[in-house]
Nucleic acid binder design. Structure first.
Length: 569
RNA sequence: GGGCCUGUAGCUCAGUUGGUUAGAGCAGAGCGCUCAUAACGCUUUGGUCGUAGGUUCGAGUCCUACCGGGCCUACCA
């Protein structure tokens, strides 16, 4: 039995995520996790909230809450929404956990021992009014290049020129508007990634099967300019993991915390520790190659904006530690999903957010659309028309109606139990052969994480059921050869169970409903399709399910288009 | 400025190492069926593959330039 460690990029804590965030990491990761479990493999699927950093502090301040309290609440909110989206994490952790504190400090200590940490003195802008150092982009002012008066300290959004905060004319704090700013000297730890460049380069080179999106971003950072640069891994903030060398103090670093991008990936490991502490399981057999993780296949899912940290910084941390931690085997990265002609935006409240989506329709609708339109080769676009059309056709007409027509026909002609008479004949064998080919193709796409192609193949499998019914026409054979009709209907009912098993990674709730209607708990993967289609024997009772997927009406669609045209409050 | 990705039917997308008449789903048209959520099935109309050159016996596929869209560019995460 294969063992799969699967992680989704951990969502930031400062708000509820939108559908673009969802489709880029958590959702495809869940698809893969469910598929691997469905095939009988051992899976540990982890996710967490990413809780440190300036935006979290500011969001908490806006909400008038202590940051720890704010994060605890938002974690609960995100966990609830994830659950309602049927995201099947084995554990949904927190990067602020004690486990992550200890492990992050441990890694820093090991990196220091290995000579991979340097102390660098930086000059940084301090806001007296805010009582804090300001990251470059939290300083606003007039662009020296184009005169735009809301240019940020890192870049002018108007003319796209790269800036330094000191370049700005009349700089002010983006938080308070205060102009009482000064440049202060501050010391920070840097991770000497440059030392590990050749190792990282060779490692990336060996990953010939990774998506181009993943490797090209890594290559760019490895070879751009002078090559991979060292990176600051500490910040002057209150909220975060205190800088320590293992369990020892770090002289000169008092009052500083680790940079969020240093501790966030480490949470992938710490999260397994949280899971183990909560369940009594052993986490090291998933993460330590000296303690049983040798045969683990580790797959990460993320949006393209996260790629540098997962291909370079985090591997540098692991390699640099000199300890036998599991390195990622495959990185599946995604482009972005746009919303109706523009970008989804958390900060601007543009688009559809996860909680809102669930207020409109059950998760399966969103799961199906998002996954079947996953932004794999380029950015993709969400429009309400496309969503309505795809969901109505695929889920309501092709799959839902299939379930309806066969169960209702059976109830009318044979009652609510699987008809016993008749045998499968040539037509049925042909269907089995066709389905076998398609299911093997589906498995191949799912193994390769070809998300869109998987969805296409699954849909084709559903269509095959309708084609069969149409040509078998039990409503005709029933009149002349009831036994033949009985066998045809028996096959049709068995198809429902088969579809439930195959479709579960995409639409878990509907799949469970289908199984419940068939009164079956047999979720065995159909390695042998013929056998799978004989699972429900003659005489087995079932119920006619409610409509699986109600159609989205034009009125609903129009209403939603209007409601979601602006920005969120 | 630099790097990477992308531009194929009205829409969303496939097109493997260059190889005969460029594919699928949706939408449109016609026919069939009547078990079903006016659902299903069959057939079918749509494309000088962003533009212009080039390499080649042969290019959607390789090269160059240009045009359009997107992302990244290291202190948001």
């Amino acid at each position: 039995m294969a063992r799969h460690l699967i992680t989704s990029a951990i969502p930031y804590i400062n708000g509820i995520k939108h559908l673009g965030n969802l489709v880029g990491s958590q959702l495809p990761a869940d698809l893969y996790a469910r598929f691997q479990r469905g095939r009988g493999n051992e899976v540990l699927f982890l996710c967490a909230t990413d809780e440190h950093g300036t935006p979290a502090e500011l969001a908490a301040a806006r909400a008038n809450q202590p940051v720890a309290e704010f994060c605890a609440e938002m974690h609960a909110v995100q966990a609830d929404i994830a659950n309602r989206f049927s995201l099947s994490f084995d554990h949904f952790g927190r990067s602020s956990s004690p486990q992550n504190h200890a492990l992050t400090q441990h890694f820093a200590g090991k990196l220091e021992e290995a000579g991979l940490i340097s102390e660098v003195s930086d000059k940084q802008v301090y806001s007296n009014a805010d009582g804090r150092f300001l990251p470059d982009r939290y300083i606003e002012g007039t662009c020296p290049n184009c005169g735009y008066d809301k240019a940020r300290g890192d870049q002018c959004e108007n003319c796209t020129k790269q800036l330094n905060p000191v370049d700005l004319i009349d700089p002010r704090s983006a938080i308070s508007g205060s102009t009482d700013l000064e440049v202060r000297e501050t010391k920070h730890l840097h991770l000497r990634q440059s030392v590990l460049r050749d190792d990282l380069d060779a490692w990336i080179d060996s990953k010939t099967d990774w998506p181009v999106l993943t490797t090209s971003i890594a290559k760019k950072w490895l070879h751009d300019g002078d090559g991979l640069r060292d990176r600051g891994i500490t910040r002057d903030l209150d909220w975060g993991i205190p800088v320590r060398k293992g369990d020892q103090d770090w002289p000169g670093m008092e009052g500083k915390v680790f940079y969020v991008w240093f501790d966030a990936p480490i949470e992938y490991i710490a999260c397994a520790g949280e899971w183990a502490d909560a369940t009594g399981n052993d986490w090291e057999r998933w993460w330590r190659t000296d303690k049983g993780a040798d045969d683990v296949r580790y797959t990460q899912f993320m949006g393209k904006d996260n790629v540098p940290f997962h291909t370079l910084s985090f591997p540098a941390t692991i390699l640099g530690s000199g300890e036998p931690w599991k390195l990622v085997d495959y990185i599946k990265s995604f482009n972005f999903l746009n919303y109706d002609g523009g970008q989804f935006s958390t900060s601007q409240g543009r688009g559809v957010f996860m909680d809102q989506a669930l207020g409109l329709l059950p998760a399966d609708y969103w799961r199906w659309w998002l996954l079947s339109h996953a932004p794999e080769s380029s950015d993709a676009e969400f429009t309400w028309e496309n969503f309505q059309q795809s969901v109505n056709k695929d889920l309501a007409d092709v799959l839902g109606n299939f379930v309806s027509r066969i169960t209702k026909f059976c109830r009318a002609k044979f009652g609510e139990s699987v008809p016993e008479a008749g045998e499968y004949g040539e037509q049925e064998q042909a269907l089995i052969a066709d389905l076998t080919t398609r299911i093997r193709a589906y498995e191949g796409y799912m193994e390769a994480m070809e998300v869109r192609k998987s969805a296409q193949e699954l849909r084709a499998i559903w269509v095959a059921g309708n084609e069969y019914l149409q040509s078998a026409a039990p409503w005709v054979t029933f009149k002349t050869d009831p036994d033949r009709a009985a066998a045809q209907v028996r096959l049709g009912l068995n198809l429902i169970r088969l579809y439930a098993v195959l479709s579960a990674p995409f639409i878990p709730t509907a799949s469970a409903d289908m199984l419940a209607a068939m009164q079956s708990d047999d979720t065995a993967w159909p390695d042998d399709v013929a056998a799978a289609l004989s699972t429900l024997p003659g005489g087995h009772e079932f119920t006619v399910p409610e409509v699986l997927f109600a159609k989205i009406t034009d009125e609903q669609r129009e209403d939603w288009q209007v409601r979601f045209a602006g920005v969120r409050d």
